[in-house]
Nucleic acid binder design. Structure first.
Lengths: 196, 196, 196, 196
DNA sequence: TGTTAACCGAGACGGTACGTCTGGTCTTAGA
DNA sequence: TCTAAGACCAGACGTACCGTCTCGGTTAACA
């Protein structure tokens, strides 16, 4: 009885969808993620609350989809043959996503919110993180095959050491790494993973 | 017209203070940080809401103080002379804090909340993080002086590489590192910082 | 930044409205006007506080409307041709309203509250008092035209002398007039206003 | 245990008592009775809340005592031998008390409050009303003995008819009677009570 | 081309937590 | 022992959001 029948995606209004996603990012940028309420989002997007809740489970889900759609940060590696340069490009892309005037606040907010909402956390992991880690692993596997890394280089550890400083700094309110700091990180990690 | 004349610390009721802090941790453990409300905390602690707001600015501030007081995770390094072992002890202590049945949920919650509330974030940084980083730097400086690390080893990078994986995994809902994974991290970092 | 966009009366839930008004009178009767809180009213009426505040400005406004709707005391005069009898009927009706088990406490309470809240006082005057005074004046004007009263009988004074003892006794916690006392009042006033 | 032993009146600080009473009237005049809180009263009078509650049961009791002490309105009749003039003097005194810049707000407030607080209501009746009604009855009895009133004139009715319009007008937010209106009331009542 | 199902905006609803305020009690230290 | 100062518990206040719901109006697929 209470169960709302699954809505028909065919008939979904794309205008309402886009307005909701766009407005969500705008409002995060202006007010900060926390201060964005579904009520206000609905009014400003010219959309009804029921419509939002018909298609998304929460504010976080809206913002996550908006971020994903906005194509934040490069997904695929631009491969130049220079491993350090390629890592630098990817890490810089991630940092830029967090500092982007429009996307940054939404991204930080949704990540923090994901720590409270397990469903949202899972979605973030799957939609934002996993594809980029897969790309990262691809690139690293090639480097390992090329002999740029030790043949038994542990890619999970590599992913952690390279990416984690960004998240730690987010979480502890330290300033995010700049280019030269990223280079230091990369050099340290490559040294740790170097052959013999 | 914020009346808020600063309250007189001399006359503070220690009983109310302790009850509030204890109950805050208990409720975080039982319900999760998010689900703890100041109303419910006040009732269960047998304390009035006004008293809570007289001494703390928010739920997060209460929980932070409770965690700090509970002496979560070792502050000082136990120095054995074996650097890898000492780092392992400290990092294990941190991971244990996050997985502790009583403190873990409070700690995770307050860290996530700190990402929304800048004041709280600053307090976390100062009360929880900074003292431990100082201890860490002490230990690392000794190791550098002993020649266990390169004479130009960058301790900021070292701190990031060693601690950050824990925070990244928290943030992305990955499982926290276990002992053997921590050992891997430590070995990689020590290799990156090794002399010559 | 009073958001308060005027609510849409068309879509008002009559069920919630009735439950609120009914419960307000019940609670006044049981607990006394002062002890009724909006919180408790909302819970007992099965209505949210927001709904109450959406449609009424205060507890007093709810109770006033409940009283008005309950049709306390006869509004129109029942005209029998016998002036003294008609006045007796009306005054008795007023006294009965104040002693009514269900309405009395609400009515006394809202009148007293109106002395503190000017807006409420004005509403009481307009919704409860003015229509009855108009009816009273109609009846008295007819009596004056009939020669039952002096041609220059002052109806304002008449209204005061006849009704005021009830209010004075309310205010000073004297017992309210009974039938025979009302008759005395009426006889005195009619004598004072009698034609030459 | 909870029972506070009756305080020793001998040792009562008269300075605190006077400051409390004076400040109570001042604050009623400035802010209105409702807006005066015991907290604010204590602070402004330089007196502690505990001291206030030791000697008075409520804000209303303080204000009532302040009014009584301020000797509002003439208690005794000034007897000139002219009954209408004497009544006019007394009624004018009462109206003046209600419109007095300093005492009026306190008096109106405490009267309204007395309708909620039965104990306060009783005290008002005994301290403020009863003595004046006794004086009134004295004067009226003399007039009856003098033959100015009918020998069977009902003094209770007389008191009601003469005084009640003031209270009704207070309660219904009508303007208080002015001199000429008081004269009309007096003339009507004297006519109703006139011999034969 | 008319019917109809499901969308849509609007916004009222029951809940619930917020942070503030007031009332009345209790504790502490000083006179 | 009384006082000033003020912390304390209790709980009401009015506001803000939440997520659900009901209402007409509109739109698009099917008849």
């Amino acid at each position: 009885m209470t169960k709302t029948r699954a809505p028909n995606v065919q008939r979904r209004s794309d205008k309402s969808r886009q307005a909701t996603l766009d407005t969500a990012l705008d409002m995060c940028a202006e007010l900060g993620y926390r201060a964005v309420t579904v009520d206000a989002l609905a009014i400003r997007a010219g959309v009804s609350k029921a419509t939002i809740y018909r298609w998304w489970s929460s504010k976080g889900a809206v913002v996550l989809e908006a971020i994903d759609e906005a194509g934040i940060a490069p997904r695929e590696f631009v491969e130049t043959g220079d491993l350090a340069a390629d890592l630098r490009t990817q890490l810089t892309g991630i940092v830029n996503a967090f500092t982007d005037r429009r996307l940054g606040p939404a991204l930080r907010g949704v990540l923090a919110d994901g720590q409270f909402d397990p469903g949202l956390g899972r979605d973030i992991q799957q939609r934002l993180i996993a594809p980029r880690i897969a790309e990262f692993n691809n690139r690293m596997r090639k480097a390992r095959d090329n002999g740029e890394l030790a043949p038994d280089a542990d890619l999970e550890v590599a992913a952690d050491l390279l990416h984690a400083p960004i998240y730690r700094r987010l979480m502890l309110h330290y300033p995010l790494p700049d280019q030269s700091y990223l280079d230091k990180i990369i050099q340290h990690v490559l040294r740790a993973l170097a052959p013999i």
